[in-house]
Simulated scan of single mutants.
Amino acid sequence: MKYLIVMHIDPTVLENLTEEQQQAIGDGHTAFMAATKESGEFISTQALGDPSTSKVVRSRGGDLEVTDGPFAEAKEFLGGFYLVDVEDEARAIELAKQIPDARIPGLALEIRPVVFADLGTD
């Protein structure tokens, strides 16, 4: 079964990390990717740009409007994700606990089952 492990980022937390902590996070992600590739559970990962670079398309009075950034009330934002193919939810949770962000107060990982996918290939 496929699961999306979503990384929720609090920019204030990241700004306060030491260089050593930042390096440990990078090294931890590299190790996580290598391990899940070797186990055959890795499908893909993507890191997303800062929300300040995003655009939002929404309907306003019957017209489509494009605005800058999501401007959500929460300070946390979607920073990226891992897509994994695992036996069950318990394994997805086990993998999420291995991602270094899980050990940093103020960061969070959300695990959601994939219920539909279209890979765009015939």
Rank of each mutant, 00 (worst) to 15 (best):
K55R: 14
S54K: 10
L109R: 03
E73D: 13
A108G: 08
S54H: 12
E73M: 08
P51C: 03
G79L: 01
F71T: 11
L17A: 10
D10S: 04
G62V: 15
L107T: 00
D101C: 05
N16H: 15
P105N: 12
G26Y: 07
D68M: 07
S59H: 09
A102E: 09
D88Y: 04
A90M: 06
Q22M: 15
D68L: 11
G62R: 08
D101V: 03
Q98R: 13
D50Y: 09
A108R: 04
D27P: 14
K2I: 14
D85R: 04
L119T: 11
E87Y: 11
S59F: 10
S39R: 04
A102G: 08
D118S: 13
A74V: 15
R60L: 11
M33H: 05
E19L: 13
G106H: 04
T12F: 06
V114M: 04
P51D: 04
E94P: 03
L14I: 04
D50N: 07
P105Y: 07
F42K: 06
A74L: 12
M7S: 14
I9Q: 01
F42T: 02
I93E: 00
S44Q: 04
H8I: 08
L83D: 00
L17Q: 02
V6M: 08
E38T: 12
Q23H: 13
E15Q: 07
S39Q: 02
V13D: 03
E19D: 09
S39V: 02
S54V: 10
E73I: 15
H29E: 01
E41Q: 14
R103P: 03
G26W: 08
K2R: 11
D63M: 05
E20L: 13
D50M: 09
L64A: 15
T121A: 14
D118N: 09
I9R: 02
L64H: 07
V6L: 07
P11W: 06
F71W: 13
I99M: 03
F116R: 10
M1V: 05
S52N: 06
L4M: 07
D27A: 11
K97C: 03
Q22T: 11
A31T: 14
I5T: 08
V66T: 08
Q23G: 13
F32Q: 00
T36R: 01
E89R: 10
E41H: 12
R103A: 13
K75I: 05
D63N: 09
R103D: 05
R91F: 01
E87T: 11
D27L: 11
Y3S: 06
I104W: 15
F71L: 09
P51A: 03
